[in-house]
Amino acid sequence: MSDDVILLGHGGGGELTRRLVAEVLAPPLANPVLAQMDDAAEVDLDGARLALTTDSFVVDPLFFPGGSIGTLAVCGTVNDLAMQGAEPKYLTLGMILEEGFPVADLRRIVADLAAAAKRAGVLVAAGDTKVVERGKGGGVYLNTAGIGVRLPGVSTHVRNAQPGDAVILSGTLGDHGIAVISQRQGLSFETTLETDAAPLWELVRPLLERFPKDIHVLRDPTRGGLTAALCDVTTAAGCGIRLHEKDIPIRPAVRGACGLLGLDPLTVANEGKAIVICAEAVAADVLALLRDHPLGRDAVRIGTVTDKHPGLLILETGIGGERILLPPAGEDLPRIC
């Protein structure tokens, strides 16, 4: 890497993160399981088909409308498992606390975490606590690792997308990212937006059980948003995707806040949405199943996988033009004007 120090952008989930992983982390650790490079690793142990993942949480602020870092620490990890077609079973919880942090706030965070774990049907099975000196941490950092059991006959890896597949989104984009940013210090605009953070297994399980072979890809558009998630698909599967801008559901409040801040709603993070890429033949049934569930009420088809323009994600704009969507470079910077 030409840059010789870590920048914030290296944690942004975009091109800088990709390079950090590819150039610094992956080579010395290389092994066939890590080489899957998906949100969760598929591992087989004594005949058990498992999925394994870990995620760290450094969100600022710790509390935001609809949840807290505790909610995220569960949802982020169990959703990585769910998107791999695995039923989340156990979590570990690592906490790095800053000296001076109020115990009352920690109780609230753990209560949110417990509620989310209950809803997701997982048990927190082990934990670790460390405390760092005041000024050396952001109050609370959390890490969770999760283990789940993969449904038999299911494969939802990003490389499975096939030309002709339907691209379906389970609901509105950008709610989580904008709810969090609205609470950041110095940016208190009024909004009724809440985080969409929710465990997704209950939403996708019925799809996988009914159409185990026809659900080709599952992905949750977290950091980097829809654009980053679908660029992963076009790159891994070597096919193109065409999206219809007018079909992509975005709340007016999210659209407005993004306009104000110079952010692209398609790259803003979500914590409770799923992208489902499935065979055209079952698309209508998949949509109906999603809409049957409260988490998928606003599900909508947003595009199609194509063998034209392999590797490219293309958006047909509302006025009939088109543009290419590229993975975000890193931390999105709010603009001047």
Binding site: L315, E316, T317, G318, I319, G320, G321, E322, R323
Partner: peptide, 9 residues
């Protein structure tokens, strides 16, 4: 102009 696709139209 770019984002809306207008430029290409």
């Amino acid at each position: 102009f770019f984002r809306s696709g207008l430029r290409g139209l």
